[in-house]
Write a protein that binds this DNA or RNA. Structure first.
Lengths: 187, 187
DNA sequence: CGCCGAGTTGAACTGAATCAAGAAACGTGG
DNA sequence: CCACGTTTCTTGATTCAGTTCAACTCGGCG
C-alpha cells in the first residue's frame, strides 16, 4: 500500500484526508500465477495497480493472442476503452507471477471525483500520463524498427526478459517471436 | 463560437455560468492559408479548435516532414507533449486553408481548473477522449495495412482528399506518397 | 509554349512475416 | 535423479507489403 500511495503522490500530491479517502477505495488481493483478473467480454470495472509481480493484458485477434500491455512491479494498468466507455472489453488480464494486485472500482472513483475536486484533479493527471505514454508508444510503433523497439523496452525494464516469455514480449512489441529471436541474437 | 460551445457541451454539459467562464478564455483569430500557428522549438501554450477550415500539425524527422495530425472543420487539436509537459515542441502547426482558429492559453485553463471543479471535469473528459482516440490510432497503425488505413480515413472525413494534398495524407497515414497513390488507384 | 509542382507508374530492394524444422529448457512421474 | 514429452526458443528458406529511386504524365499559369 505504501508503494501505491507513493506512486499516486508522484502524480499529484493530495492532501492527507484526500489521500486517505482515495486509498480507501482500493482493495488488494494476492493472485496466484496464471490467475485471471478480467476475462474478455466483461465490462472492466477496475483500474489496477500491481505490487511486486507481473501482469499481462491481451486479446484475441484472428486466432492469435495479442499482448497489449505488460505491467511489472508497482505500475498501473487498465482496459482503457472498457473502463471509460463502460463497454465489454476485448481484453483479458492475467498474472504472469504471483502478484499482489490493487484495484479500484470505476463507480467508487466517479463518486469520489464528484465529491472531491482534488481527486478529480489527480485523476485528470493520471489520464494525462496515460495519454503521453500512448503518444510515445504510437511513435515507437510507427517509426522504430524491431531492433529499436526491443532496445527501448530493455532500457525501460531490463529484467523483463527473465520474467516474461519471449512470445509475449514479441507480441507486445508488435513483431513475431522469430523476429524477436533474431534481433536478440544479432551481432 | 456556437460550434465550439456545441462541441464542448457534447463532451460534458457545463452549467451556464461555467460555460460562459470557459468560453471567455478562448480567443479567435482568422488565419490566411499557409499561416503558422506554432513553430518548432516553441513551447506550445495553447489548445486549439478550428472552425470551418483545415490545419496540419507536422514535424521534421531526418530531413522529412511528418504529418502528425490533420484537423478539419470544428475539431480540437494541440501539441500534447508540449502543452502538458511545458517543453519545447518538435511540432509545427500551419493552416491548409483560410481558417478561423480558436485558442485557449494553458495558464488560463489551469487557473479555471483550480477555481471550478466543473471545468476541471470537462477538461478531464477532453483528455479522456484524446486518450481513446490515441489508442484507436495506435491499433490502426499497428494492425491495419495501407489500404485499410486509407479506407478508415475516408470513412471519417470523406472530403479530405479534395482539401489536403496527397503527400500530407500519405504521411499522416504513415505511408509513402507512392504507396498511397497505388492504394487509391488499385482496382 | 515551356516550366513547375502534384500525382502516377515501374523496377529493384528490404525488413519483417510466414512456414517449416530443429535445439534447448523445463517439469512431471517413475 | 533420470527419461520423456511438452513448451519455449532458434535457425533457415521463402514470400510479401511497402520503401526507394527514377522516370514519366498531367494540369495549370506566367
Amino acid at each position: 500500500m505504501e508503494e501505491l500511495s507513493a506512486r499516486i503522490a508522484l502524480m499529484y500530491p493530495l492532501s492527507e484526508p484526500a489521500m486517505a479517502q482515495f486509498l480507501s477505495i482500493w482493495k488488494s488481493t494476492t493472485y496466484e500465477k496464471g490467475a485471471h483478473l478480467l476475462k474478455a467480454g466483461q465490462v472492466s470495472n477496475y483500474m489496477y495497480f500491481v505490487g511486486k509481480g507481473a501482469v499481462r493484458i491481451y486479446y484475441q485477434k484472428e486466432e492469435k493472442e495479442i499482448t497489449e500491455w505488460l505491467a511489472l512491479d508497482y505500475n498501473f494498468f487498465f482496459s482503457i476503452q472498457s473502463f471509460f466507455q463502460r463497454v465489454p472489453s476485448r481484453l483479458a488480464i492475467h498474472t504472469l507471477e504471483t502478484s499482489e494486485v490493487f484495484m479500484m472500482h470505476h463507480d467508487d472513483l466517479m463518486q469520489l471525483c464528484e465529491q472531491s475536486h482534488e481527486i478529480e484533479k489527480l485523476f485528470r493527471k493520471m489520464i494525462t500520463t496515460s495519454l503521453i505514454l500512448s503518444q510515445i508508444r504510437m511513435e515507437s510503433i510507427q517509426f522504430e524498427n524491431a531492433h529499436q523497439r526491443y532496445q527501448r523496452l530493455l532500457n525501460g525494464s531490463p529484467d523483463i526478459l527473465k520474467r516474461v516469455p519471449l512470445s509475449y514480449i514479441a507480441s507486445f512489441l508488435g513483431i513475431t517471436q522469430e523476429t524477436l529471436s533474431r534481433v536478440r541474437n544479432a551481432r
